[in-house]
Design a binder for these strands. Structure first.
Lengths: 323, 323
DNA sequence: CTCCATGCAGCAACCGGTTGCAAAAAGTAT
DNA sequence: ATACTTTTTGCAACCGGTTGCTGCATGGAG
């Protein structure tokens, strides 16, 4: 079937070890021999078997990328960037979707560990304890989640939330609401803490909610009941759903209630009204996370926290408070 | 480091082959021995090394999924579904993005083949000839691309295009335009052929264009110049960009020009105006493609074409022609 | 013309499993 | 008790590479 290193060895009249070295330790083989071997290899269409190589070297040259929901528009740019960056370093990446389920997440990590050199955990829903344990088996880099002592890429959503609250209060809103996300979400907690720390404002916490359009739509009644006129939603999807839910109940955005999302997904840029949102540098996060991961794979140490800036983008879903 | 089959063998006082069989050929080992071995294995936290297993069995239990652009909203639902279906069958999936570049695509397939049992090629930009060649190295299933004799999952975009054209002519539009996609795209070709076959209508073909918002925006001038009042765009992204481009030039949709997209991505459902579009069953396609792929991995034959239905969804971006 | 350092290639063990074959154990029929 | 199956287990080779060690040339120093 496939052409192996022995075929190449036979065809070029050298020992397999020489062929092996011609590829992975060029300086240890005579330049002439090397070009000859390489020529024969190319001729035969030989391609090294990464899995076999991994067996001895311990390096699979694969990465795992685990996300809560591929279809959530927040992730694709991150996945794309991570995958591209990995390819640059000659790494392939497994992508897996946990459906927001911690059980699945853990199981996935377990079965993946042997096949990868490291795992990128994006917005994990696992407990800190579980993460600490799993960490023994394979290097991690966390995205959007803080666990002490672990390599992490964070986006400064706390600051984003502060900016959002200031924006809303600046527009005259006095009663605010935060439509929170899933309970395991670091981002959600971070937003809550940031908002709660702003003592001068009155903000109601509504949740937890699934991080989807449906989640937002379902929260509409609660938002109305809260009496808030300024709302910060867990993410754009929720914000969009919320706006729809409010519209169904005859509440206009931004006329009656101002809504701010998080993520700056494409759909928000095109929506009606165009969404005011906190932009997250997801592509950058993916790229940096891969770099950190590969670095920690080599150096055996996996630490360091990278905090990426977020930005408030004001569009049309926020406006002056009336009253 | 990691616990291997030999550790388990030693700890349970049997030979490695017995441990191996306890896992992968249970019926060949005495039930009592088996439970004992499994208990020890569980105790030690043993997990079989898939890569090592692949070396002898030839089955990696991995799949490759290659798409033109992860960030294109058309793909995530497909990726998600494919990945979920694969997991059901105990397969992991490599996801790779080609950036719409055939060179990258080919290279990716080459380096992936040894690590996977099969590859899902979604909307490939490769030539038929190249695909035929690569096919020798690894089983394929094609999505959104027709190559004779190969397993394929298609979405009936031809019929979709016909419905779209009928919808437009039904609204009184006489001059139509088709904003085509990338030159290697089967979908684009299919749409063109379907439209061209409708002899009674006058449709201009504008393209090729990159399948993005920018591509659509850039095509706006050309669309106006064509004099068309009804436009079918390669996909929703292009349609959205086009609508923006038209708006910049003072052309209203659907007031002056009607626009239809393809894919039914979320952003279109939320846009202004809400996009009339041809819905593609992407999740179903992903699921079925994985099933077909796994089937062909087992049976050594990879054929069969599955055609999935599309549907025209009329929203707000199309309207009556004003003479 | 030795002696030794250096460069290059071969040998063989090993990575973590699988599997055909044979031996041993257990069961069955005579 | 013997001969013959049928289970159950062990042995050892193998999958496709890698790598520490050894051995052979070659070349420069003394």
């Amino acid at each position: 079937m496939a052409v192996t290193i022995r075929d190449v060895a036979r065809a070029s009249g050298v020992h397999v070890s020489t062929v092996s070295r011609a590829f992975s330790a060029p300086h240890l083989v005579n330049p002439e021999t090397r070009v000859r071997v390489l020529a024969v290899a190319d001729d035969l269409g030989y391609r090294p078997n990464r899995a076999a190589r991994a067996l001895t070297t311990g390096r699979t040259h694969n990465l795992g990328l685990i996300v809560a929901d591929i279809a959530n528009p927040f992730f694709p740019p991150l996945i794309k960037a991570a995958q591209a960056q990995a390819r640059l370093r000659d790494y392939h990446v497994f992508v897996a979707d946990t459906d927001e389920d911690p059980k699945v997440e853990e199981e996935l990590i377990q079965t993946l560990t042997k096949q990868v050199d490291g795992v990128l955990l994006c917005s994990p829903r696992l407990t800190n304890r579980t993460i600490e344990r799993l960490r023994q088996e394979v290097p991690f880099v966390l995205v959007n989640r803080r666990v002490k002592g672990m390599a992490t890429v964070l986006m400064d959503v706390g600051r984003g939330a502060r900016l959002a609250v200031e924006h809303l209060t600046g527009l005259g809103h006095r009663r605010l609401a935060l439509v929170t996300g899933p309970s395991g979400s670091w981002t959600s907690k971070e937003m809550q803490e940031a908002a709660a720390a702003m003592s001068e404002v009155d903000v109601a916490f509504l949740g937890p909610n699934p991080p989807t359009e449906q989640g937002g739509r379902a929260a509409a009644a609660e938002v109305i009941a809260s009496g808030a006129t300024g709302v910060l939603a867990y993410n754009d999807l929720v914000a969009i759903g919320l706006i729809e839910g409010l519209a169904e109940r005859g509440v206009d955005v931004p006329g009656d209630i101002s809504v701010i999302g998080v993520d700056d997904i494409v759909a928000g840029r095109l929506g009606r009204p165009k969404l005011t949102t906190i932009a997250m540098p997801t592509a950058t996060a993916g790229r940096i996370a891969v770099d950190m991961l590969l670095q920690s794979v080599d150096s055996e140490v996996a630490t360091g926290v990278t905090m990426l800036e977020t930005a408030l983008i004001v569009r049309e879903s926020t406006g002056e408070a009336h009253s």
